[in-house]
């Protein structure tokens, strides 16, 4: 499967990762080779196999509904670039 530059730009925008012009041809090549491998796997008949959602054959790792009340906000906020009055600040984002 071919990947156009348009598709690459869309992926870049969705993942919020800026891609420099000069590495685009190499990146397209890499992505195409990954897709080639996926295409190979798609040729295998899996119609009689139930898809797994997780590689571990386990289920129900559940927690009791109990709240803990030790939120160390000041501690957690130490690693944030900017905070104010307990809020995290980000560049202004309005949809």
């Amino acid at each position: 499967m071919k990947i156009s530059e348009e598709v690459l730009n869309n992926i870049s925008s969705l993942s919020k990762i800026k891609i420099d012009e000069d590495i685009k041809p190499k990146l397209i090549e890499d992505l195409e080779s990954i897709l080639l491998m996926v295409e190979k796997m798609n040729k295998i008949d899996t119609s009689k196999i139930e898809p797994m959602s997780h590689p571990l054959d386990e289920a129900n790792n559940l927690r009791e509904d109990i709240a803990m009340h030790e939120i160390k906000r000041d501690n957690y906020q130490k690693s944030a670039p900017q905070t104010e009055d307990g809020f995290y600040l980000t560049p202004k984002v309005i949809e």
């Binding site: 927690r63 709240a67 803990m68 906000r73 957690y76 906020q77």
Partner: peptide, 27 residues
């Protein structure tokens, strides 16, 4: 109306001080 959040054990009370109910998982 649970006591704790869906994937973390932080409390779910409404109207608390900002980020005082956000655990490491919620962050």
């Amino acid at each position: 109306s649970t006591e704790s959040k869906i994937f973390s054990n932080a409390p779910t009370k409404f109207g608390q001080e900002q980020n005082s109910q956000a655990s490491l998982v919620d962050l």
